[in-house]
Design a protein around this nucleic acid. Structure first.
Length: 225
DNA sequence: AACCAGGAGAGAG
DNA sequence: CTCTCTCATGGT
């Protein structure tokens, strides 16, 4: 299956997602951090607590009492590390004169700086770049790896950066609107949606709208294929 | 490279 | 109610 076919199929089936309805860039960044190794529902609970406590700004978090911050974000799990990481990121944003200034920065330099922050790995960095700063990057996650492999877009799973490079090259060659950030946003959102609904168990896999070549697989669990 | 860092929710009993 | 399973990334 071609990359563009997959996108078309997903878009036809699910429609536009309009992902990450956050009120501010900072909220997107906080969400990206808090959803690490936790489902979005729990991350949302933590964000709501921060909002209700009027704490959802870099300066508030940077100056917050660490124990209070921990309690607010507790629903997202790993709250001690995450509280510390939120402070680190908030300080980084403050030192760089805010998220609007950061948005103006060039992609690869900004990406390197984000990755240098403890608590930001590839996926979180790219989620922030795409959804908070509107940079055209293709976010890779576990669903992406799995779906692309099953759809035959890639042969085997590789490292994050190799797969990303491969996909981004393909996009530039084959997708007409590759400069449109919304394409990257929508594609990733659609992949996650598909993964959540259809790629978790065998019965569901068989009813998947993307009729990939592993559709009729008889394995007990396809979760880690 | 294998392992560890919680908490929430759902399902079984 | 308690036990067990699922969810899902980054640092070491």
């Amino acid at each position: 299956m071609q990359l563009s076919q997959l996108y078309t199929k997903l878009l036809d089936h699910f429609g536009k997602q309009g992902w990450w309805p956050a009120e501010t860039r900072f909220e997107v960044i906080v969400g990206a951090m808090l959803t690490q190794r936790t489902n979005w529902r729990n991350a949302e609970l933590a964000i709501k607590n921060l909002k209700d406590a009027n704490m959802l700004s870099p300066s508030k978090i940077a100056s917050a009492d660490i124990n209070a911050l921990e309690q607010l974000i507790r629903p997202s799990g790993f709250y001690k590390q995450k509280a510390h990481r939120l402070k680190t990121i908030s300080e980084y944003i403050i030192n760089n004169n805010g998220t609007n200034k950061l948005k103006k920065r060039e992609l690869s330099g900004l990406r390197k700086e984000l990755l240098a922050i403890k608590g930001i790995g590839n996926e979180t960095a790219d989620s922030i770049l795409l959804y908070a700063f509107g940079k055209p990057v293709f976010v890779i996650d576990a669903y992406t790896q799995r779906i692309f492999k099953r759809a035959g877009i890639v042969a085997e799973q590789t490292s994050y950066s190799k797969l990303q490079k491969f996909i981004e090259e393909k996009i530039k060659k084959n997708i007409r609107f590759y400069k449109d950030v919304n394409f990257y946003k929508e594609f990733h959102a659609l992949i996650v949606l598909l993964g959540k609904i259809y790629c978790r168990s065998n019965p569901l896999c068989e009813t998947c709208p993307v009729k990939c070549k592993f559709r009729k697989s008889r394995k007990k669990s396809l979760l880690f294929v």
